[in-house]
Write a protein that binds this DNA or RNA. Structure first.
Lengths: 204, 204
DNA sequence: GTCTATATAGCGATAGAC
DNA sequence: GTCTATCGCTATATAGAC
């Protein structure tokens, strides 16, 4: 956002870009400070002057990537009819979480969750928790309107998001070659929205 | 299963045990061949004579651990009424996938899925895919009896398993300290079974 | 087969010149 | 601030004695 003015800031950004790519692509352990310096076109010492040590650079890079993913703009301001709105949201959410970038960040954070609990927590709050709250508010509104009969909206949001992730996401997580076709995925998403709406429909 | 007869086989088992614990507990990169040798009470060279290199030992150890987890015995032979049966299955499934051992293997396989696709595929088939098929058969039976109205039973199985995993599993994956209470979890599982049954109930 | 000792290489981090 | 050169350490893997 802030345009770099000094030469220092330019190099800092180069380092951060290179680090972000390497950390998310190959994980923490497999990424060396030497390689980051080389890819950023600076010396290793310059990397250390800017970020102190590997951990600090790692945390900065992942936080930076989380911002870029932009989880916030998935639900519309004014909610339309339940089923079409949820279907649209489901498609957007699914596309987002199965994107290569999102998968890469998730994988890296999960892998380092034991060594860097601070980092995985940061990701968990900016990602899953954030979306849960957003959707829970949306479901509360539908409940208020009497279109859905939900006792615990936060719980229902968790259930909805979990269904949408489904199997395809796990396939990607494990890097399984054969993935589902776009048609199969759309069929799955539609079926899932229907299951959810039927499960929580108002009977009155 | 096979009782080791020679001294060689005893040492091989010691190595495999130590390797399994270390790899699942601390991951691939953080586990050194030196430590495995030390914990197994043998020399490093002995480790190499038995398993060639680190990768081969890794794959052998994880495969071994997958067998031990025993995913097969979650559904009863004779299916009772839908809701109680699914509730019991949900509890068993949830307990299994959130166990420390299961989490550890999952984490390790996912983390190494890029470097060892053969391994992650092995886990994916022995774990998630296996359970999906089992549950799909069960749902097919309920559909045949007319107790559930399911168009695609495999898809429905995926949906059910995804809901059950829910948020708590993700918390564990990211090593988030605050986890849900047993009461909250049971409430979630019951609510999820109800959602599923209502969403797929026969209307006739 | 099994051990001790070692070769070889890559890592994170630092020292000192400019 | 930035560079080159290097330290100190640990890793995988191997050589050679028993």
């Amino acid at each position: 956002m802030n345009k770099p003015r000094t030469k220092s800031e330019v190099k800092r950004n180069q380092i951060l870009d290179a680090a972000t790519v390497q950390f998310t692509q190959h994980g923490y352990a497999a990424t060396s400070m030497d390689l980051i310096a080389k890819l950023a076109g600076v010396s290793k010492q310059t990397v250390y002057s800017h970020f102190g040590n590997k951990d600090e650079l790692f945390i900065t890079a992942i936080s930076y990537k989380c911002e870029l993913l932009g989880v916030g703009e998935l639900l519309p301001e004014n909610l339309g009819p339940v089923e079409p709105t949820l279907t649209l949201f489901a498609q957007g959410f699914f596309t987002m979480i199965t994107s290569a970038d999102s998968m890469a960040v998730h994988r890296t954070c999960a892998a380092e969750s034991l060594a860097h609990p601070h980092l995985s927590r940061l990701f968990f709050e900016a990602g899953p928790l954030f979306v849960i709250d957003k959707l829970a508010n949306c479901l509360t509104e539908y409940h208020r309107r009497g279109e859905l009969d939900i006792e615990d909206c936060r719980q229902a949001a968790i259930q909805f998001l979990a269904i949408i992730k489904g199997e395809q996401w796990t396939r990607l997580e494990f890097n399984i070659e054969e993935s589902l076709s776009e048609q199969e995925i759309n069929h799955y998403l539609q079926s899932s929205v229907r299951l959810f709406v039927r499960g929580y429909q108002s009977l009155s």
